[in-house]
């Protein structure tokens, strides 16, 4: 799926409000990462500092901090759960998020508290297109001027 020139793999679920993707793993955990839209808003990411493995994260609370040019932002969790793993590679190479946000740039893995109930809040692939497009519209997203927007984005 392509929205405003940005790729969103059809195999992933999305939390458009949080500009995150989610992938359900075979063991019942969920992997989270920043979408291409999040990357476009932030621009070059200089650091990602996650909370500690084992931390319990409530929905809409921070699971880490993203630092980008001249500013920083919370990475807010779209669902409640316990942090099972963080992508250690990002501690030394945070730019992996920009380079491969759907692969090597994954951020954290979470054990959700009630995935069966929460899952439907995160549309899969194409089904997320309207919500992503609406989020871009509300942000007045301009792909040609994305990084400048990131500095003003809340």
């Amino acid at each position: 799926m392509n929205v405003q020139g940005l790729e969103f793999p059809d195999t992933l679920r999305y939390a458009p409000e949080h500009t995150l993707w989610l992938r359900e793993e075979a063991d019942g955990s969920v992997t989270l990462g920043l979408t291409a839209y999040g990357c476009a808003l932030y621009g070059q990411i200089f650091a990602f500092t996650p909370k500690r493995v084992g931390a319990r994260i409530e929905r809409d609370r921070s699971f880490g901090v993203v630092e980008f040019a001249k500013a920083a932002s919370s990475a807010r969790c779209p669902l409640s759960g316990t942090l099972l793993a963080v992508n250690e590679a990002l501690l030394k190479r945070p730019g992996l998020i920009n380079q491969d946000c759907y692969g090597e740039g994954w951020m954290v893995r979470l054990q959700p508290e009630n995935w069966a109930a929460a899952r439907d809040a995160f549309p899969l692939g194409e089904a997320a297109q309207p919500a992503i497009a609406e989020r871009m519209r509300l942000d007045n997203f301009d792909p040609a001027n994305a990084h400048v927007q990131a500095l003003q984005w809340k």
Partner: peptide, 11 residues
Amino acid sequence: FHIATLLSCMD
């Protein structure tokens, strides 16, 4: 102020 930003981002 930068530290305050980061701390706030960590809730």
